[in-house]
Write a protein that binds this DNA or RNA. Sequence first.
RNA 1: GCGAGGGUAGCCAAGCUAGGAAACGGCGGCGGACUCAAGAUCCGCUCCUGUAGAGGUCCAAGGGUUCAAAUCCCUUCCCUCGCACCA
Length: 896
Amino acid sequence: MTTTGEEPERAFDHSEVESRWQSAWDEADVFRIDDDATDPEYVLAMFPYTSGQLHMGHVRNYTITDAFARFERMRGEAVLHPMGWDSFGLPAENAAEERDTNPRDWTMQCIDQMRDQFVEMGFGYDWEREIATCEPEYYQWNQWLFKQFREAGLVERQAAELNWCPSCETVLADEQVEEETHDDGAVDVCWRCDTPIDHREMDQWFLTITDYAEELLDALDDLDGWPNNVREMQRNWIGRQEGASVAFEVGEYGDVDIFTTRLDTIYGATYFSLAPGHPVAQQIAEDNDEVAEYIEMAAQADEDELDVTSGVFTGEYATNPATGDAIPVYVADYVLTDVGTGALYAVPAHDDRDHEFAEHHDIDIQQVIEPADDAAVDPEDVDVQAEAYTEDGILVNSGEFDGLTSVAARETFVSEFHGEHRTEYNLRDWGISRQRYWGTPIPMIHCEDCGYVAVPDEDLPVELPEFVHTTGNPLDAAEEWKQTRCPDCGTDATRETDTMDTFVDSSWYFLRYVSPDLDDAPFDTDRASDWLPVDRYVGGIEHAVMHLLYARFFTKVIDDIDLLAGVREPFVNLTNQGMVLGENGNKMSKSRGNGVSPQRLIDEYGADTARLFIMEAAQPEKEFAWSPEGVQSAHSFLQNIYRLTEAFAAGDITFDAESTDIADYVDREIDATAARATEEYEQFRFNHALQAVRELVSLLRRYREATDPDRATFERGLVTAAKLLAPVAPHVGEELWDHLGADGLIVEADWPSADAPVDYETERRLVENTREDVRDIIDTVGIDAPQTITLAVAPAWKHEVVSIAREADNVVPAVMQNQDLQQYGEAAADFAKTLAGRANIDEHLAPERELAALERASWLVAREFDTEVVVQSADDADDTLASQAEPGRPAIDISE
RNA sequence: GCGAGGGUAGCCAAGCUAGGAAACGGCGGCGGACUCAAGAUCCGCUCCUGUAGAGGUCCAAGGGUUCAAAUCCCUUCCCUCGCACCA
């Protein structure tokens, strides 16, 4: 125990309790799921990178999935809730260097450490399905899948200018390059070490994800279970532009294709521009020193160093197919080699960049689009010499096409100028080569005669050799490993020394859980087709593009090569959990010194306190700040519910066998709580569900204080609270369950049935309003010691009037025409008039139901004012009093 | 610049998709019960006014639709995030 003298005695010792139940779950195999289960609920958290350090983000992420998995399990679902280790990657190499060990030993040690912590947190995983991507049993299937992709024509070896991190000494995918802004502009840096990146030309293995660009984009529309921002980020990343390509004849170099989304502006093209990397620009450079220098300079320049006006005239001219004019050809850095065709015609009048460039280089600006009649801008106000007009409009100065709309012109011009419709994507192919050791060896062999040859299946896996400490790529230094024979011709050959991007590992791991020990295929196709897609996927927003896009790509390819039967998307519902901020509301970080160690929290307060605090703090998507008060509050709640249950179990509570109105009230609240908590769990709003549980426990305490409770009702309340709490605080849940003398484990118990009581909301409103009115009167009048509070329900005829009034358009005549109400004459008419003046008439209970509701709730009023409360029907009540009552608003009399 | 999501009482934060009660809950603050006292627990209050349940003003700002708007529509301002020399 770590209790200090200042703190109250703890009701139980969390470390003893928690480890005891963890063993019990383990022995009862409660988290194991049979291979023959049919379409289980697949609940998955993004598996952790094996840094060895569990942080609050992990705790939150895994508590969310664990609580939801436990909830579904109690509801009777078969649940697949596995865990594994994203265990390849550069940090392990760095750690190995620092600690004079090797990546494997380091990683394995991290895994053991993290697994222990997960167990301590009470996370219920099917550990028999545990996987680690750094094991040959796993990564051999990366290699096998790579070959399958290759056979499907989805692997290419391309020379490409690549992002190179000089510090990590490796190539980075576009996705791994981040922009860092400084005072003097932006710099591209390595996502891992923040070192500014270089560019290098190298041969690399690519997966042609661009072949799937269209489906990856279109299918986003149907991913309703994904957050909008993630879908939008992927749309952005894939970046589709609908346009057209048209050829311009460039001097002696022949036709050069351009891509444009604004073919309607072609008559306004007054110059032509090539990217520095465009083949024709390179050709021109051979005879033109000025162009050559410019291209060289542009290649050296940092991102953003050259502005839009940077460029050089080549001395060449292109022919505008629309006007027949010869327009000057420039090489300009703002034209990007890998966007479109790397060449464009420029229309200064209708494009901001072209406009700026033209001004700087003194090129003609020719207007060809005017605002349409219905545009917000008057054509007179448009001065393209001053500023580009970039909206669509009506063509002018475009020969016979004047008067066409932009939309029509774009269509017409495609055939007119022998172009073609074309769709371009920003998405680039996925370069997976990494010049590092701790990853999956790419299963290729280079033979002088045969070129690149895949390692035959029977020779897989290509296992990593022993790690050697070296400055370069350790695989390159492993001479013995490198030397092999060509599978085709048998002559000496060398192995590929690059390893795969670790995002390959995580692109299909969710399939491996289905059959983790299978040794003749990556996963069981039938079972995977039944168990997938993942029903609930939870992880950080940082994976919005990379991991989630690659995983979608892999799933589609795997389905296309018939390893899956009709699974096009891996994750149906996605939740990105928010950050856990430091106490001051800032990001937790070492430099700020505001980090909180999960381990210390577990030691001090126990896993359940940590879990409860995190889940109560906010909805999963929202960030929240760490709060010692919140932790304390969660802890004392657990202690309190424990004490209450213990008192019940120990026979410290006196019960009264007679059924009472109070018991009826409590019974209804129990049902309402179960209903509400169930809905909130389903909606992933754990904080709301937990709030309901707290309210129920508080009610049970008040119940006990107010009277000798009914035993069955009180017990049912405790059982319900324990069950509703169990997914979030499972150890305490078991302990409560045990005290309540129930059979088996709460983790396997049935979820409480969840129908809200009849008229619950209306009744609650009636009771709350009445209590407030009583308070209001006592307060306003200044009554010190009320003797008796009398509540009288309105007579049945008034209820009838209200019912009629709710339906009728014209209240007073409708009421007066009613035969039954005529006997109440004047009174009925007056009441009808009152109601007619109201904008809205609330729902109300029938008189006998209203009476019963008030009788059930009267103990709350009696308790609050320490007084007698009498609830009367209209017949029993004094006439004057009863006449003041309305449906939903009993008359109140307070005597001193 | 483009896109996504937001702005609710001292603070945090529900409600907004399906318009109908000054607007759930928590923290903080105030008062009361219990207690020798503190803590824990319990009962209230916490926009303004009010000696019988009332009235007034409210959900970034302004306008509109409606019997009725925090909720729907328009405009403006501000915040957070993502993308961005993308032709």
